[in-house]
Amino acid sequence: MEIDGVQVHGESGPPVLLLPGGAESCDGFFPGLVEGLTARVIVHDRPGTGTSTVDGSLAGAAAHLSALIDRLGCGPVVVVGQSLGGAAGVLLARDHPEQVAGLVLLDPTPINDARTCAGLERMTVALGRLASVPGLRRPLAAAFRAAALRSGRRQKLRPDCAAALARTAELDIPTLARSVRGITDLARGLREADLPRLPAVVVTADRKPDHAVRQAHERLATAFGGSVVSWPGATHSVHLDHPDEVLATVRELLARVSSAT
């Protein structure tokens, strides 16, 4: 059903808010997750992302999402966020802890690591500028698409996950650059000590223990009082290359949240 233009799947069970990565649309981003959960799953494109026609920024994400939860009357929610959506989930939990019952962060952008975020912002800004040069936008988009399709073939993704990967490969580079803008300042202002203790799982890609992103994820999990999990061969798109494990992880956290209420 739709509530004020927001899709809500399911009529009972704990509320789950999905936050996709980058500036992607939420619809279809998490294959099998909506259908596999006995929950009320909120599918919504926040301002500045997906199909939203409203300008927005990562800095304004927490306030917008908190207002959305209030408007739907469904809080507190379990947040499932991938990549930049995971960073938005962290900011929501920090700024509005009463709205968040639990977190499943899928290889989240490490908003608690200013150095990594600064590199990400520089890279995406540079890509955005390149994409604005006449004659370069189409070749850049084609290169991203080809790389994604090669990755999907190499990982032998199941059909619905391969289709989702193909959709995300059709990214709008300038929009992606705008969605990341300001993340360095947000990371510099985030103190792990300010994060609330709540049920949380941080799913990290298959990286070496000394990798900066892996270490940032471990610090996030510690700050929330949660745990870190990783699976062999998991990539940044862990929701696509390990969809069954992700679904099981979300189900387990929902069960923990439900049993505690």
Rank of each mutant, 00 (worst) to 15 (best):
L127Q: 10
A87D: 00
P76A: 06
R46S: 02
A148N: 15
R71I: 15
T109S: 14
P110L: 12
G86C: 01
A59G: 09
R94V: 03
L103H: 04
V43S: 06
L68G: 01
H96R: 11
S57C: 12
L92W: 07
A147P: 10
S132W: 02
D70H: 09
S83M: 04
G119W: 01
R94F: 11
R129A: 14
G81E: 05
D107L: 05
T109N: 08
V90N: 02
A114N: 08
A141D: 10
D45L: 03
V78R: 01
V41T: 15
S66W: 01
A142Q: 15
M123K: 15
A147I: 09
A142L: 12
G75W: 05
S83P: 05
I69R: 03
T124C: 13
I69K: 04
A63H: 15
P134M: 13
G73W: 11
L84T: 03
G86F: 02
I111G: 00
S132G: 11
L58A: 07
R138F: 03
L105Y: 00
G73D: 12
P108Q: 05
G86R: 03
T116V: 09
L65T: 04
A147V: 14
V125D: 12
L127K: 11
R122E: 14
C74E: 07
Q82L: 07
A93R: 04
D45G: 02
G56L: 02
R122P: 08
H96S: 12
G50T: 06
S83L: 03
P76E: 07
D107M: 03
Q82A: 14
H44N: 11
A142N: 13
A62S: 15
G56T: 04
G50W: 08
V104T: 07
L105S: 03
E98N: 14
D95P: 02
S83G: 13
R46L: 06
L58Q: 05
